[in-house]
Design a protein around this nucleic acid. Structure first.
Lengths: 186, 186
DNA sequence: AACTTCATGTAACGAGTTACATGATTAT
DNA sequence: ATAATCATGTAACTCGTTACATGAAGTT
């Protein structure tokens, strides 16, 4: 899904500025399953406006750039509606954590523990953010998406905690990283 | 994580050709949490060999290009070991499915059902592939990664099935997509 | 004093995907 | 017959990120 469609979706929840849309991807509803940076949002908003999918109202402010609040036009709303009927791309889950875990037998137990604890902490913080999630209420389906995220996150935490000792037991005996298996053999 | 590191990891599980590495990302151990295409794997392998991290042995075959089997050099193994000690990037979960679900109230119930059923089918097939997963056994930690994937996938399926009626109830009354909310008002 | 928040925008750069080029063999 | 599998490789292209430019107000 392109940034343009993501922006259209953000604005379908209510008028907003580029800065506010960014926050939606950083801390808001969308933060757990999508992302977008200023470098992609601002040009997208400009293009969308040029194409007649958005209108823009500039609110002048003192000491900072005008706040440009964007709204969907009829065409913009229709275009987004149509996007909702397009085939949905399969989800993508990219995890350097799991990738590393495949090589647990090449790591000292201490490193595995470290990775595991970091991950667990990351997951717990994400869970907090999901449950706090204030911006979610804008859409009636927000609660559901929130619950889904919480459910999955909890299930990851549970698995990792239940299998902690098993995971740590995979580590090799190597005490420092300078002593690689190859060197140990040679 | 760059393709180069991913390739190094793939080869840490055993010597392989570019074609075989691709399969690892398509159906093998890595398929559920990472991906890479030929267009990135082949150049990466060439570069890695130029840099002395890999050696390459060409096996000539009839009627097809030489099969080039790559192996990690000492330097390659060491470099990968070091990568395992680098800070791990947070996981990224991109879901057009959840994004769409936020706008369930702008879809007719039939479309929601369709999306939900597709997703459920996708998840069930993924679960099958995870449980089948033959290539996983190469690493001792393969089972664990496999179980993690299965656990999370099952938890997603459960949530979606338990909440099916609740999700479908979010839909709007609009029967066809040509009758958008805006048009209904006007 | 230093950092965070608010606020927009651009340009260079990076990294990977898609599509193309080539072609025999095997399974349906 | 038709499609899939095996097998490598390149070039154009897409898309987005990172970093920079600018700067005031409020917070620690």
């Amino acid at each position: 899904m392109h940034v343009r469609t993501l922006c259209l979706g953000a604005l379908a929840l209510g008028d907003a500025s580029g800065y506010e849309i960014k926050k939606l991807f950083e801390e808001g509803v969308f933060s757990h399953f999508s992302e977008a940076s200023f470098g992609s949002i601002y040009p997208a908003l400009t293009k969308l406006t040029d194409d007649g999918l958005l209108t823009c109202q500039a609110h002048s402010q003192e000491g900072r750039p005008d706040k440009k609040v964007y709204s969907l036009t009829e065409l913009g709303r229709k275009t987004f509606q149509e996007a909702l009927f397009q085939p949905i791309q399969p989800d993508k889950y990219r995890s350097d954590f799991l990738f590393s875990l495949v090589f647990a037998n090449q790591m000292p137990a201490a490193r595995i523990s470290e990775i595991l604890n970091n991950k667990l902490e990351e997951l717990k913080e994400e869970l907090k953010r999901i449950e706090a999630g204030g911006g979610v209420s804008k859409a009636p389906s927000g609660d559901l998406v929130k619950e889904f995220g919480a459910h999955v996150t909890v299930s990851m935490i549970e698995f990792l905690e239940k299998n902690r000792s098993r995971i740590e037991a995979l580590g090799c005996e190597t005490e420092t990283r300078s002593r690689t298996p190859c060197e140990a053999i040679g």
